Simulated scan of single mutants.
Amino acid sequence: MKLTHAPLRLSTGAFILNSGLGKRTLEGEAATAVHGMAVGAIPQLRQLPADRFAKLLSRGEIALGAALLAPFVPSLLAGLGLAAFGAGLVQLYLKTPGMREPHSLKPTQAGIGLAKDVWLVGAGLTLVLDSLTHRRRP
């Protein structure tokens, strides 16, 4: 990991790891609510029971957060994971009714929480592009 990637990886990694740790105990109505939002954006997730989905989401966030924090994980790989995760959240924002003003990308008050996740896509792509374009000096 390049030193210049550290602030980006530490801030996003700690945030996502904390989110995943907070979801470890999701059950019942809370798991159903999270699952319901996800199914609205990705209908195929309907095949998973809500409790199982919540556990997988938690584990995925923990794994991604840990990968971003671990200096031995290449920034290219960590960036790809971060960009994919962020893209999933942006898809949730775009497909969930009531998150955007009609015929617009502008978020409603309810959508601000998801709309801001576009920064995760940008951060992930920054890590990927910098990794692909960085020339190592001999």
Rank of each mutant, 00 (worst) to 15 (best):
G60E: 09
F85R: 06
S75F: 05
L129T: 13
S58L: 13
K95L: 15
A78E: 04
D51K: 10
L125M: 15
A50G: 05
T108S: 15
P107S: 07
V121A: 06
G98F: 03
G28T: 07
A83Q: 13
V118S: 07
L120K: 06
K23D: 01
S131K: 02
G124Y: 10
F53D: 09
L17G: 02
R9P: 10
L127A: 06
A41G: 10
K106F: 01
A6K: 14
T4L: 13
L89W: 00
G98H: 02
V118Q: 03
A41M: 07
R137G: 05
D51E: 14
E101C: 00
G40F: 04
L77M: 01
R24I: 07
E29W: 02
T4N: 11
L77V: 14
D130S: 05
L57E: 11
W119F: 14
Q44S: 13
Q47T: 05
L127Q: 09
L92I: 07
H35G: 04
L105M: 12
K55L: 15
G111V: 00
L69I: 10
G22D: 05
G86D: 11
A63V: 15
R46P: 04
L17V: 01
L125H: 13
A70Q: 08
A41H: 04
L8D: 08
A115E: 00
I112Y: 04
F72M: 09
T32D: 08
L76T: 01
A66R: 11
